[in-house]
Design a protein around this nucleic acid. Sequence first.
DNA 1: AAAAGAAGTTGACGCGCGTAAAGTTTCTAA
DNA 2: TTAGAAACTTTACGCGCGTCAACTTCTTTT
Lengths: 343, 343
Amino acid sequence: MDGNKVRNMEEFAMLSGISRPTLSKYFHDPESVRNSTRDRIEKALAEYDYRPNIFAMNQNRRTTNNIGIVVPFLADPFFAEIARNLEQRCIAAGYSPILFSAHGDPALEVEILDSLRSQKPAGVLLAPLGRASDRRHIEKFTAEVPTVLFDSRIPDMGSAFVGMDNTQSMRMLVNYLCESGSPPNFLEMRVAVNPNVNRRRIAYVSAMEALGHMPEIVRIDGEGWEFEDIGLQGGLTAFATGRFTSNTILCSNDRLAIGLLSAAYRSNLTVGRGENTDFRIAGHDDHPFSRFTCPALTTVSQDYGSISDKSLEILFELINSEKRSEIGSDCLFDGILIPRASA
Amino acid sequence: MDGNKVRNMEEFAMLSGISRPTLSKYFHDPESVRNSTRDRIEKALAEYDYRPNIFAMNQNRRTTNNIGIVVPFLADPFFAEIARNLEQRCIAAGYSPILFSAHGDPALEVEILDSLRSQKPAGVLLAPLGRASDRRHIEKFTAEVPTVLFDSRIPDMGSAFVGMDNTQSMRMLVNYLCESGSPPNFLEMRVAVNPNVNRRRIAYVSAMEALGHMPEIVRIDGEGWEFEDIGLQGGLTAFATGRFTSNTILCSNDRLAIGLLSAAYRSNLTVGRGENTDFRIAGHDDHPFSRFTCPALTTVSQDYGSISDKSLEILFELINSEKRSEIGSDCLFDGILIPRASA
DNA sequence: AAAAGAAGTTGACGCGCGTAAAGTTTCTAA
DNA sequence: TTAGAAACTTTACGCGCGTCAACTTCTTTT
């Protein structure tokens, strides 16, 4: 390209010898013009370095080409990884992803949704904060914008949901732990940040009861999204005061488990499935770092790829179908047991 | 708000009894109108739920209210944490941050820059991929858009840079390790992803030589951004084949060190600064997870807050000053030694 | 080769807001 | 109180592109 800056489509029409409406069609969908025309346009494009003004483009469109991705806490590598998957799939599908993190703040989540609405996105993939979310606001949003909720289900919310089957995964984990050693305690934060934790606790209880074991739940203090630190502090206290009734601890998620591993290490307790260890520890989610803890963490894998694929598949259906209300069903994926050295 | 949807500013002008140009001023800067007028507008705003069309707004502005934040790999919690800091500070300063990750892909980095340019951002905070970046492209971009580079310096690039002083931090780390035990080996990836690593190696060598020690560099194979895995695999091999000439290993960054810790654990080697341990391991960056490794990782802290603050401070200067070319100096922060149990 | 259909051209209007000019009202200060 | 400044209103045009209607040119079909 010559670097000649072309101011607008009109000017580019002059230079390329193509009429402006045809150019408009081309930029909306390159396949919609004749091959010979497309060639001429692209030849001119290579020469003159013109890009249509996106603001003017979007002003008159009912929806843009953008897909919003909203996660509750991006500094959590779990969400970073999911976001990465979603982004790449959006791009592959010809959309422009826009990424937002609520940073654990419900007010920010509301703001993000508001600003997103005014950006007329084609659709939105939303992992809500959960318990702290402003449900009315989210409901209103989903009514206006094609939205797929993922990771964290909000009860009675009409839109589609993609996530994992906590009941299945916890049962699997409990069964595995019971078969390979003593029945586990369940470790969770006193204040649950999202409904997944509640479902996991319930699933834990029923899985334990089904095996004829007494469920035992250990709750630790701490609020916010610094799960590792909460797991560490709570774990130190719990180990020191002997709050665990089993040598096997099942944590409500991997980040808590990572903190607990650290607490065990600092308490001079060994962790692992061997004979001479003090504790076994398991988590849930297959957090990107769980492979590298010492010992590596036994957990249940959420299949990031499948969840991403399915979320987008449903979203595209929503976008392309007029009657949005019809698709409101949940789609739950089974977790896969990832046995590692910790349990 | 009644939920009455107002289509445009003209209609809102009718309903509120304020002229459209005044409303336009208000939305551009609420402080620019008289108190009584602002009150009337905000009263109407509460009643009618109107938001100006951002596309129409931005079409006629030379620059928008947006600040682009581009990082090389968002699934790396280090960048997630920096991005979080930057985002929150942008919001506090009245800007709208837009977050992008190149996902380790130079082509995507170029695309992001291109699409960013057409969005007329007020400014951009860019942590380039480094070695793999398309330098010409970035240079062209920085010439058009006020840009502050951070984390990874690109040599001879004209724009401002904020980062950390690798020479200082490595010297500090080497001194600490030598005082408290044997002089360290330096562990790095054979293929450096960014210039920081090179600078750290050089700083390591000169710090060692200054103390009269023989520098020893261990390079491990592996490409890409999966540093932990590379550290793990490379570490396993290195331990097995006895490639280390010291019991103290200084890694070029924390993620590599986390992998190496895992390799040591799997090789039944103990790590720590105690008498009876096999190895001491240290990293660099104070990665969010380094506090929770077993043992906790000794490292050098990059002060996320200061780097974010300074980056934005310089960016705002760039935005508000006409002659951009003048501000081209580096701003380097000292690291802070974080001694933990691993070394 | 003629007719039908697809694709392109010309011309024109509208989107919602920025912004300038000219006139009017309201505030500020002496 | 009153002049002057500041803020507001009215009017009008422009931004760059979407899109429609009517017409022309090119491609395809039998």
